[in-house]
Amino acid sequence: MSTPQLNSIGEALARYLRDAWKRPVTCTTISQIPGGASRETYRIRLNVSGESQGVILRRDPTSSLIDTERAHEFKTYRAVYGTRVPVPEPILLEENSPGALERPFSLTREVPGCEASPALLTTPPFVEHRSEIGERKWTILGHLAATDIDSVDLAFMDRPEHPAAHELEYWAGVIAKDALHPQPVADAAIRFLRRTLPPKPSKLALVHGDYRSGNFLYNTSGEIHAVLDWEMAHIGDPLEDLAWSFDPLWCWPEKQLAGNLLLRLDALRIWERASGLTVDREAFRWWQIFASVKALAIWISSAEDYVNGATKEPILAYAGWPLIDRQIRILLDRLDPVSEHRYAEALL
């Protein structure tokens, strides 16, 4: 996006906020943040009545990796804000389209001085803080699992009768709808998961839905200041997030450290301590395979979007090409009766 295009977004937002807040607002700087595939994301510095404020603008793209509603994510931010799970402060949601910024958008407070990139976790200075960041990552996830879903406002979310069955059928449906080529590995995985459904969880929890390195803000003190990207959040089985956070794709091409941070067993114990829950290993094996199927469904959907959708964002093509290849190799390692575990270690 060119500088004039960026500036016009900043100016349009300032105009909108002047009307909404009845205060003088100008946009001082604006830059687009890379990596956000489900929303266009901008870092903006505003001058509000003479005071400088950093905000993050998330605007619906014309096409997205994940088909979600912007209101869903914003309401989840509002529900979680102030709990032991850190999230950016939600400021406002504008759902009108076409409105001030042509497409719906939300605004949250900027969390300054942090990084989100998963690649930076393997390089100095962050690599020295991996164990602290990992400790925080799975402690926060444990706290999310421990959160009483009746103590926060999640009335806008459904409560599935059987979370595993519900999630499986949803993502199997995405694959059936969007696959541009036959997917025999995904088909076999879905059949296996249908045959071996785990029991209902002992408790329902708020599930982030995409809890992985890359979706939280960390710093060199080993602290995590905010968990981001809640667009796939739902009520379900807390094991779903734990399994997703262990998927080998998030540490590719390495296999040993979950999310490039900690050994999986260490992460699991931290999560158990923080959540007060004990992992049912058999159910957890199911969720680990499910995680790879869900990821594959997202990449398949991205490929479909790239080919048939309005936008030609390279991230959609990347997800729909090399990532499908990697995720299939991971699933093969999970399911092949004579797996050599070349791309994924044995299930925990």
């Binding site: 036959p182 025999p184 590995v185 076999a188 093969l332 092949d336 009766p337 004579v338």
Partner: peptide
Amino acid sequence: LISALHAEVETTNDVSNRRIWSFLRAHS
């Protein structure tokens, strides 16, 4: 067709099941 065949044999014919997995591995 191979996906349909796999669904047919995976719980009833271990030899065919393994041959299909082996093909899927080689394919990948």
